[in-house]
Design a protein around this nucleic acid. Structure first.
Lengths: 211, 211
DNA sequence: CGGCATCCGTGACGATACTG
DNA sequence: CAGTATCGTCACGGATGCCG
């Protein structure tokens, strides 16, 4: 187990760091915001984490009420880890880190891993203030992911194409994600500047195109 | 030095954690948001941090552009550490952590240290949306601190009584800070419920009383 | 005395190997 | 597939010492 090492400070930020301040914990949350994942998937999308540390973090997070472990029904019966509501409430923390870190991101280094859904945080920021709800499919050079806008529960985003009919499909590049993440443009501004291509007919698509 | 241990992920949140994810770093930022501090003051308000780790973090943070080291003019010539603009931009990260951690704070434990200015984060949240700017002095059982509302530069809050004439003086207790930090009430609501006593005559005081 | 640097014991971490 | 076991290394916490 772990955070036996508490900061022992009567301060809400310090208490939060007692729970999620350990190495890898917040990145595991970032992965699980994409929906339920198996151990092996987590290990594959967190290059560098060792198997024992990953197992230990998942135990701690379950103990602390951030995640639950569930057995998938056969066929393909396996355990999946998913965030509790409490765990999903860490989204603003990751958003704040992402906004701040966007300035330090720069160009991709040779040693950097990339996954398409890691761009969901900046795209979500670009979608702030959008009134309509819906399922958005996003296409980047680096791959595809999807985002649930205005969802009250369930995953916030996910890897791969949208599961089912998407309300909007967006095509953009990583640089535009950076612009959105730094807040220099909202998504509707980026559409207006031609940096994002919008495909779709519903209210959400209309709002993004005309908003 | 340190973060030689990068996550090596092309993701803004991971990059942020490369810079501020080490143990103690964000708590040092929390301390420095209270204005320039000497090494010894930092060590005193961060119980548990070892001297070498504190020195190492301060070096890393200076190298990474989060802090600067400045020599105070005599008398009392000493080095003080203070946040750069880039470092102050971490306030939203600490706010998000504080909001999330507020639910886990509970009652004070016997082993918990307390400092009055650690309550500045929840009070700042309560002040969100306040239009007027000014210097606010806050009195708690645990001590006194002050907050600059709407300041563009300089420290965000500070320990002890306000340096100079405060525009407002607030008296409240730690429980009310928790309510503000969780966002259950805004400061004006808390005033209306009689949980905060407001003293002062300027625009800021009027807004808090009458808002 | 404030501001670190050094030394040391413990535990967290990362890589690999192995098992139900 | 989902971890556990083992092991070397490094980061951390505590104490002490040095130097202006």
């Amino acid at each position: 187990m772990s955070p036996r090492r508490s900061y022992d400070q009567y301060c809400s930020a310090a208490r939060a760091l007692d729970l999620v301040g350990d190495r890898w914990t917040l990145l595991i949350v970032r992965e699980l915001l994409a929906g339920p994942r198996r151990y092996t998937d987590l290990h594959a999308d967190l290059p560098g984490v060792s198997t024992d540390v990953l197992a230990s973090r998942l135990k701690d997070m379950e103990r602390d009420g951030l995640t639950t472990r569930r057995r998938l029904p056969p066929p393909g019966a396996a355990y999946v880890y998913e965030l509790t509501l409490r765990g999903r409430e860490l989204l603003p923390v990751l958003q704040a880190l992402g906004v701040w870190g966007e300035s330090a991101l720069g160009a991709r280094r040779a040693t950097d891993a990339v996954r398409a859904h890691w761009f969901a945080l900046p795209v979500l920021r670009g979608l702030e203030g959008v009134g309509s709800a819906g399922l958005v499919e996003v296409r980047l050079e680096e791959g595809e992911f999807h985002v649930w806008v205005g969802a009250e529960e369930g995953p916030v985003y996910g890897d791969g194409p949208a599961p089912g009919e998407a309300d909007v499909r967006l095509t953009l590049d990583a640089g535009t994600c950076g612009v959105l993440g730094r807040g220099e443009l909202g998504l509707r501004d980026a559409v207006r500047e031609g940096r994002v291509v919008v495909v779709g007919e519903g209210a959400l698509a209309k709002e993004l195109r005309e908003g």
